[in-house]
Each structure stands twice: as C-alpha cells, then as structure tokens.
Design a binder for these strands. Structure first.
Length: 426
DNA sequence: TCTGGGGTCCTAGGACCC
DNA sequence: TCTGGGGTCCTAGGACCC
C-alpha cells in the first residue's frame, strides 16, 4: 500500500502554550525567551509580522517590546513538556502509530488508518479541531508520500491560512507546483551552509533540487543529500519508527548569569549539571560509560581571548549514581582549570550509555559494591525531587540562590505540573 | 551591560594492523 | 625517481534538526 505520512506540527509552540492559559493575550504580540532570557526562541504571529527574527537578542529589541506592548515570557519547560504530552496522547486517539520527532511535532502513520486515507484533508481538520479544543494549541497538518514532502506541506500551510491548517500532498501534480514555489531553505535537511553551496551550483528552488542527479549529488554532499532528493520526488527513504529512539547522550549545560573566574562558582554549576543529567539517565534506566566536562569563555567578548577546554573520564562500572559522577566531574574540572579566563558557559555530557541491565565491570575495577544502597538513595532523591517542592540537592551544587544560575525574570506559572500554580476559579 | 540548549548523523583523516 | 594495499577503529569537526 502506498505510504502516506502525516505530520502534525504545533504553531509557535512555546508562545501558544503561554497564550493557552492567558486568554487576555490572544491577539497580543508575545515572545518566549531562551534560557537566561537571552534571545527570542518563539514568536507569535503578531511578532513575526513586526519583523522580529528568530534568535533576536533581547537587548536589541527592548525598544520594540515597549513600543508595541509585546508580552515577554522566560522559557517554562515543565509547562511545554506537559502540554506536548497531552497533544501526543490526543493525536494517538486518531492515529495509533505516532513517531514523536520533537517537543512540538510528530509524524504519524496515515496509510494504515482507513478514515484518514479516504479523505486526508477532512480527517486532518478533525484532528486539528479536536487538539485545539482540548489543549488550546493550534497545529498544522501535512500529508505526503515522504517525510520531507510532508514537512514542506507543513511550511506551506503555516504561511497560507487559506489552507485551513491542513494540506494533502499526495497528488504528484500538486507536489510539482509546490516544489516550484517554496523557498529552498524550507526543505528539511537544507541548512544555511548547503543553501549557499547549492545556490553557487545554480540550484535555487526545491524543484531544481528534486531534478538534480541523486548519485552525483551524493558523491558531492553525502548520503543525506541523496535521500533528500529522492524524498522530494516522493520516494520515502526512512522506515516508520514506532518505538522511540534509544537515547545516546545527555547534555546539560548553561550560560551563567555572569562570567566567572572563580573555581568555586564554576564547580557549583558543574555539580548541578551533573545532578540534572544523571537524573535524566535514571529516568530512562541508563548508565553512562563516559562523562565529559566542558567550560568556555564568552563568544562575544572582544576584550579577552577565547578559551575553551573539555576533559572526559570513564566511571567503572558505567553508572547513573550522581555521587560517583559528581566526583569525577569535579576531578576533571580541577585538572583542566586555568586561573584567569572568565568562564561563561559550563556543561556536562554523558555518553556511551547502556541499559542498567547490561553493565559490566571491567577486570581492573576498584569499585566496591555498596549492596544497592546507592541505588536506593538515588531513588529516594528522585522521588522527592519529582514531587514538585523545593527538592533535595548536594551541597556542591550551591543553593537555589547561587549567582551562576540563569535568570528567568518572566517565567509563567507551571499551570499543569505544580499544585501551587494550578489556576483557581473563584 | 545584555546573544539558548539539547540532540543526531556523516565524513575525512590519522593510527594501527597485517 | 621509486617509496604496497587494504582493512578497522577512533576522533574531531561539520552539518543538520528542533
């Protein structure tokens, strides 16, 4: 049976989450800022119309914020994550095979659902209306014989409200017309670098890219380019993945609220990132074979030299125990520490992840078995920290008021994940 | 003064082996 | 001037995505 991929993609997701709980902001310009309130990561339609680009630093748009009365929010990931889960569950009611691709979008197997196959546009509208009604989040939906084409349909839908938020790109004739009018940078897999190189070759529309020789392009740009070309021609190059991909790494990092040359301050950040990353590992039932700590000075300071360093270690055996990982992380930090530079970005990366069942201790391990006490301690910590209160942490992480922590001055309440923040109806 | 964070995959090139 | 060939493994860096 011919493939038909569905792609549901939330419109202006972070902003839409904020608006869902603030009806008073429905028609107002709204932005959501990155960590540290540094730059714009989500914009409402009104803000896009003002010409404020994605990624604009806040300090550059202060003037417009005031002039146009733009509502500003810090990122609230517990809210967005929870809303995302609701939307995915709702989507599964219509199409059981859903492949979540990111926090705000999911592919779904549309060819195995008779009602969708019979009339994709009509079914898409129903899905869209139902998600909007039950979660308050507007989504766009595209259907096509390949993922890349379904992405393109989605871009088109977002720019053309007359489509009613849904487009079915099954028809080859319609595919050709769309390829001719869409910008090349809207093609999934074509970023700024490739765009430039393609332009130099005289390829400036998706239509021209689709017409190029896939084998020659593979030799020149690699296998992903070949796949993109085939997919633009309606040939699906990826199997549908029902089961979520196994995580291969966890990274936790941040820009500190202000740069620091104090080992103590940077240590607190390293310990905190280690604790957060280890908690994610435990949640997924994984253990890290390698821990890497990295530090670097700011990118944008011209008055001092750029400096960055990173160092790795192998816990033996692989572990998700915060205490073990934190010890290693601090050792690594002290080893690579250089007095002088003002560090502004600090992070911890956990890689070579294995399932907890498959951990093998090396022959030369010095690890002493603690009779599972460590595991129980971690379980208790995780349970307390999941309950929504202030939580427990290691002294090395500093206090909630530590100076390195990112500022989030405009954070909205956690309406759906924290009891104290639940909306009250009087 | 103030510019995010978290991921994946591919490729080229070096080291090393026979 | 000539100065193997082929295979594997690892790493760094590049490119993309959201």
């Amino acid at each position: 049976m011919a493939r038909l991929f569905g792609l549901a993609d939330c419109n202006n997701f972070f902003v839409s989450c904020e608006k869902a709980f603030r009806p008073d902001l429905a028609r107002r310009p709204v932005v959501v800022l990155s960590n540290n309130d540094g730059c714009v990561v989500s914009r409402s339609a009104e803000v896009k119309a003002l010409g404020i680009p994605m990624g604009a630093p806040r300090f550059q748009i202060e003037d417009q914020i005031r002039r146009h009365g733009i509502a500003v929010f810090s990122s609230n990931f517990s809210l967005y994550g929870d809303m995302s889960g609701r939307i995915m569950r709702t989507l599964r009611m219509f199409a059981p095979s859903v492949e979540q691709y990111s926090i705000d979008e999911a592919f779904f197997n549309a060819w195995e659902v008779p009602a969708i196959r019979a009339d994709p546009v009509c079914a898409g509208r129903q899905i869209r209306d139902y998600i909007l009604k039950t979660t308050g989040i507007p989504v766009s939906i595209g259907f096509a014989p390949s993922r890349t084409l379904s992405k393109l349909a989605n871009y088109y839908v977002k720019k053309h409200p007359e489509t009613g938020g849904v487009m079915d790109l099954s028809d080859p004739d319609l595919q050709r017309r769309l390829l001719a009018v869409c910008p090349l940078e809207d093609v999934w897999g074509i970023g700024s670098r490739l765009l430039e190189k393609l332009r130099l070759m005289g390829i400036s529309t998706p239509w021209e890219l689709a017409a190029s020789d896939p084998d020659a392009m593979r030799r020149r740009f690699g296998i992903n380019m070949q796949r993109t070309i085939l997919e633009l021609n309606g040939v699906s190059c990826f199997e549908f993945e029902d089961s979520p991909a196994v995580r291969k790494s966890v990274v936790h990092s941040s820009t500190m609220s202000e740069p620091s040359d104090m080992l103590r301050t940077v240590s607190e950040a390293v310990c905190s990132h280690t604790a957060s990353a280890a908690a994610i590992l435990r949640q997924d039932g994984l253990a890290a074979g390698v821990i890497t700590v990295f530090i670097r000075t700011g990118f944008y300071r011209e008055d001092q030299l750029f400096h960055s360093a990173s160092l790795s270690a192998r816990p033996d055996p692989a572990t998700s125990d915060t205490r073990v990982l934190m010890h290693l992380a601090l050792d690594l930090l002290r080893t690579m520490w250089r007095q002088g530079p003002q560090y502004s970005k600090v992070g911890v990366m956990l890689t070579e992840l294995t399932g907890l069942g498959g951990i093998q201790q090396s022959l030369f391990s010095t690890h002493q078995d603690d009779d599972g006490k460590g595991k129980r301690l971690m379980e208790v910590m995780d349970r307390i920290n999941a309950s929504g209160g202030p939580g427990v942490f290691f002294l090395g992480q500093g206090t909630p008021a530590s100076t390195w922590k990112s500022s989030r001055k405009f954070r909205s309440p956690c309406y759906t994940t924290c009891w104290d923040d639940v909306i009250r109806v009087h």
